[in-house]
Design a protein around this nucleic acid. Structure first.
Lengths: 138, 138
DNA sequence: TTACCTGCAAAGAGTTTGCAGGTAG
DNA sequence: CTACCTGCAAACTCTTTGCAGGTAA
């Protein structure tokens, strides 16, 4: 996604109204080169600092869920503490840095093909997620 | 682990007192052939039905965490809703049945070797976890 | 104009904690 | 006897929800 007009267009074409809260969040999440990983409260903090628009916590939750439902965000499960989201919605895996509590993308090429040799009758594989936990080596 | 005396011994040697609550939980979790996956409230429900000892929710949390810390249980992260635990503490992966909300072990042989080709300076891999979500194929 | 959205506060779910009383060793 | 453990309730964190007022189209 690109500039503000693009976001307005994108939101509208998704059936979402282009409110200033959603535009501020879109700008923060998608107007960048690299993928972005965040938690709701992390996003909230950044919004407080970088945005003049007033945005409530409920709106952040609503918007993030709306974006997820539209396929603009992906949820990544790290632990039960809180939800992490990822602006990279392609099929990929993650490093989780336990020291910094931070996600790092592993693209398809970073992880060799994964073979699942067990089969459960009448069940289909919906997704295969690899989470590699890392920490300081010393 | 085996019978009640074994559990008393095991608890004591771990520096844990062999209270009747802990023995009841040990018996329920470890006195079985196959690995067992559970949530705290699921365990609570089984305890209510199968145990005469009175056990509070706080004690279940305390005990499960104590067992985890001692290495008798492993926590498995499925989603942010609640914590799942596994009596199989060996290195292995999981199916998660989205219809039944149930975990199924994938042993080492069920999953081909996983190659992580990306390296982060000064960081060491602590664990590699694969979660395969499955659902009814129809 | 009207359906949708926001902000607030309250409610919910899961988990943790403080403390008084109980019990293992 | 005493350190550790339990049960209870309150507290806490993250998330969701209800609703009145606001706003995009």
């Amino acid at each position: 996604m690109g500039n503000k007009d693009t976001f307005i267009e994108k939101l509208r074409s998704s059936g979402l109204r282009a409110t200033k809260q959603r535009l501020a969040i879109s700008n923060l999440l998608f107007n960048r080169k690299n993928t972005f990983h965040f938690t709701i409260d992390g996003l909230m903090n950044i919004l407080k600092k970088n945005t003049d628009a007033k945005i409530s916590l409920a709106t952040v939750y609503n918007t993030v869920h709306a974006f997820k439902k539209k396929g603009y965000l992906k949820e990544v499960t790290i632990n039960s503490d809180k939800s992490y989201f990822d602006t990279n919605v392609s099929n990929h895996h993650h490093f989780y840095d336990e020291d910094k509590n931070q996600l790092i993308d592993l693209n398809q090429l970073d992880v060799g093909p994964i073979k699942i040799k067990k089969n459960i009758p009448r069940k289909k594989i919906k997704s295969v997620e690899v989470l590699v936990k890392i920490a300081n080596s010393n």
